[in-house]
Structures are given as C-alpha cells and as structure tokens.
C-alpha cells in the first residue's frame, strides 16, 4: 500500500513542480519538489533495489512529461537515488538535518549533471554564474522544501523508515 502512496506522491510532485512551484519562485529560482520527494522516498525505502526503482520511476515520469530526450532524467534520478541510499547507510542519526543536507546535495548534483549535458549539447553557459546564481540557491530552496516533503513521506512510510 505504501508503494501506491509513494507513487502518488511522486506523480503529484511532478504536477506541482510544473504548475504551482513556478509561482513560489524566489528571485526566479524554483525549488525542485520532485527531487525532494524522490530523495525522501529513497531515504524511507528498505533496500537499494527499492531506491533504484523509485529513482528510476521518478526520472521516467519526468522524461515522459518533459524530457527532450527520453532517459536522461531516468538515469540521473536512478544514480542519485542509489548514491543517496548508500550515503544514508553511513549516517546513523535519525535527524531531519541529514535529510535536508541530502536534498541539498541531490539538487546540486542533478543541476550540475544537467548543466554538463546542456553544455555538451549547446556549447554555451557560464558555469560559475549558474552555480552561484541558480544551482546553489535552488538547492537551498529544495532543502527547505524537503523538511515538509520528508515529514509527509515519513508518515506514509512509517513502517519502513530507515533514517
């Protein structure tokens, strides 16, 4: 049953991400609620395989709705999910700060990989400007949103929580 709710949370996050979140942007920076939800679900999953499937599923729904080339987000989300799962293994504290830090890193990693792909495709972009003006503020905003998303996901996954 919790898998059903997790799937629903991911789909709902994607819809919120492409509609409501744009109106909540601060100085043009929008948080990545889908990534926050995916990270929360991964941190609450019981096995690395579950984390992999959740990461892959989040990326696939993103690609189906918005992907310019099907599969880019599926792979990025999957690898971030598996990395997060193993990173969480090294953390023993049941602490929301850890989750927030993970969301920050996941968002930063996602944006950096995406910028690299974009740079390879179009050959333009000022990395340092984008890093300080967009990526870091977006990661911080995502980390803040993560507090609420994680609390919701944790409630849904109470039986199988890991952190």
């Amino acid at each position: 049953m919790r898998h059903f709710w997790n799937a629903l949370i991911l789909i709902f996050s994607l819809i919120l991400q492409s509609t409501v979140m744009h109106f909540l942007g601060i100085m043009g920076v929008v948080p990545n609620i889908l990534l926050a939800a995916a990270a929360s679900v991964v941190l609450c999953s019981n096995s690395p395989m579950q984390a992999l499937i959740y990461g892959l599923a989040s990326g696939v729904i993103y690609d189906l709705a918005w992907g310019r080339v099907f599969g880019i987000h599926a792979l990025i989300f999957m690898y971030i999910a598996v990395s997060l799962y193993f990173a969480a293994d090294y953390v023993y504290k049941k602490n929301i700060t850890v989750c927030v830090l993970f969301a920050f890193l996941a968002s930063l990693l996602h944006d950096i990989i995406f910028f690299a792909v974009s740079f390879l495709l179009f050959g333009k972009g000022n990395f340092l400007y984008v890093l300080f003006r967009i990526m870091i503020p977006a990661a911080a905003y995502t980390a803040f949103i993560q507090i609420f998303v994680y609390m919701l996901v944790k409630k849904v996954n109470r039986a199988g929580e890991r952190l």
Binding site: L14, I15, Q17, S18, T19, M21, H22, G28, V29, V30, N32, L34, Y62, A65, W66, D111, F114, F115, S118, V130, I134, M135, A138
Partner: peptide, 14 residues
C-alpha cells in the same frame, strides 16, 4: 498554459 517545465535552466511551456 497548463504547465511550465520544471527546473531553473529551461523554459518550455505546455
């Protein structure tokens, strides 16, 4: 408009 592309580096609309 029904949706805007998620993320801060692209700007597609639906």
């Amino acid at each position: 408009i029904t949706a805007k592309e998620p993320g801060n580096m692209y700007a597609d609309l639906k």
